[in-house]
Design a binder for these strands. Structure first.
Length: 432
RNA sequence: UCCUCGGUAGCUCAAUGGUAGAGCGUUCGGCUGUUAACCGAAAUGUUGGGGGUUCAAGUCCCUCUCGAGGAGCCA
């Protein structure tokens, strides 16, 4: 390997010197005596210019023969040029085809969603997909940084779990040495015991839901980050969610300028995501919806349409709290002032991206939790270990979950979740 | 799971019940500054599968299948 191989991203540091690039051909244009190759190496894209008069016959022939997505080595001099989108191009002296590609399926023009999804492994190479996945990567790092900076301990919750927590219809079942087992749909229950060990904990990993959902807001496999904090009560939970979201948005704005530009994301929409977020109780939301012609009864949950009406009233995430207890999960702490309400929080992203955070203060009273488990017809025995958290040194605690893909879709402004994860898993879709 | 709309060349799409088309891509030729390059030429079809109506079906009917959009549910 030649030691003057550089990354395209760093070309500006090598103006006027000879360098070598290793990468793939995105596009080729050629006339009788001059050729242009757009080369991508993962760090960026640059145009190599080849003058027939200045190169040997083998290089000129390579420029004629090379095809889209062939692998090449290009040697040349870095030159500033006002015509180049990046400000630089490469005056090539040698082009070598390392691997010739034939009939690359994704051509420069239009393609339908179904076709692109069938070729997801190749679609990843496109500039748009690269931009989205760079944002995802940055958000992932920011999530870990946020909790790490605040002394949270990372607890990796298990993927394989025994008996169901909230009904088996939304769980993927598998066989575990003759015993039924299920892919985890949340790490929360495993996080609560860890909160007694470390105080502040979080998990961040894939979760699985066998919901037969066929919408732009659903995947069957998605990543969720869930903090869980001992002695944190409901108002503090809302503050944590707000601080977390503003941190992530600021980080994306700070470090993802290039991908956001490529995606033509309206960054002013993200810049307005500053605390404090509007907070609205469920009853207030019902009233507001009635003003907009949507009549809901106490206890009804919001549909996509209701969510959008409420979210569009604000230019930043909307926090809806104090939901009817019966519409929410068994482990949510009732409001001391109104037992029919749960200390539950949903955060609705603006611009129609829907619910990105769901959380609550947890029931910490042993008797109450036991009663709830029975009311929901859940197998008490399977929850013995979970009840132990209340049996041995109980403590008030709260936590929430945030879906990574929905957050990334919001940041990047893409219409469908399927592009926010490298290999989306959706209803009846598991290839490639 | 339900509702709606689709499946025609490698891709994106046209085609009154009456000879199967275009653009892009590909191949060949031309061009010294292209940026979805441009100009000229050529090749490319079991119209998703099965059944039916008709003198005649890509087109109408039934069925299966695959896909897209939406709903419910959720992050």
């Amino acid at each position: 390997m030649s030691d003057n191989t550089v990354l395209i991203r760093n070309l500006s540091d090598h103006e006027s010197s000879e360098v070598r690039l290793l990468g793939w051909i995105e596009k080729r244009r050629s006339s009788g005596k001059i050729g242009f190759l757009e080369v991508r190496d993962g760090s960026g894209t640059v145009q190599a210019v080849i003058s027939r008069a200045k190169v040997d016959e083998a290089t000129w022939q390579a420029v004629q023969d090379v095809t889209q997505e062939s692998t090449v080595a290009v040697v040349g001099t870095v030159a500033a040029d006002a015509r180049a989108p990046s400000g630089f191009e490469l005056h090539a002296t040698s082009v070598t085809i390392l691997s010739l590609t034939e009939d690359y399926p994704i051509t420069p023009k239009d393609h339908g969603t179904a076709f692109l999804m069938e070729h997801r492994h190749l679609w990843l190479r496109s500039s748009r997909q690269r931009a989205i996945l760079r944002v995802r990567s940055e958000v992932s790092h920011a999530i870990r940084d946020f909790y790490s900076e605040r002394d949270f301990v990372l607890i990796d919750s298990p993927i394989l779990t025994p008996a169901a927590c909230e009904g088996t219809s939304t769980l993927f079942a598998t066989d575990y040495f003759g015993e039924p087992a299920f892919l985890s749909q949340s790490g929360q229950l495993y996080l609560e015991p860890a909160a007694a060990a470390f105080g502040k904990v979080y998990c961040f990993g894939p979760t699985f839901r066998a919901e037969k959902s066929k919408t732009r807001r659903h995947l069957t496999e998605f990543w969720m980050v869930e903090p869980e904090v001992a002695f944190l009560e409901f108002p503090g939970l809302c503050d944590l969610a707000e601080e977390f979201i503003t941190y992530l948005v600021a980080r994306v704005l700070d470090r993802c300028a290039e991908p956001l530009k490529r995606l033509e994301r309206d960054q002013s929409k993200l810049e307005s995501v500053q605390g404090p977020f509007p907070r609205m109780r469920y009853r207030e939301a019902i009233t507001t919806l009635a003003d907009h012609g949507k009549i809901l009864e106490f206890g009804d949950d919001f549909g996509a349409e209701e969510e959008t009406i409420l979210a569009n009233l604000h230019d930043r995430p909307l926090m809806i709290t104090h939901y009817p207890a019966k519409a929410k999960a068994f482990y949510m702490q009732p409001d001391a002032e109104d037992e029919d309400l749960a200390l539950a929080l949903d955060v609705i992203a603006p611009e129609g991206y829907g619910e990105i955070v769901g959380g609550s203060q947890r029931v910490h009273d042993h008797e109450l939790l036991l009663r709830r488990i029975k009311q929901h017809d859940l197998p008490e025995k399977a929850f013995q270990w979970y009840l132990d958290v209340r049996k041995y040194g109980s403590f008030p605690h709260s936590g929430f979950g945030m879906g990574l893909e929905r957050f990334v879709a919001w940041m990047t402004g893409i219409p469908h979740l399927r592009e926010s994860i490298p290999y989306p898993r959706m209803l009846h879709k598991i290839y490639p």
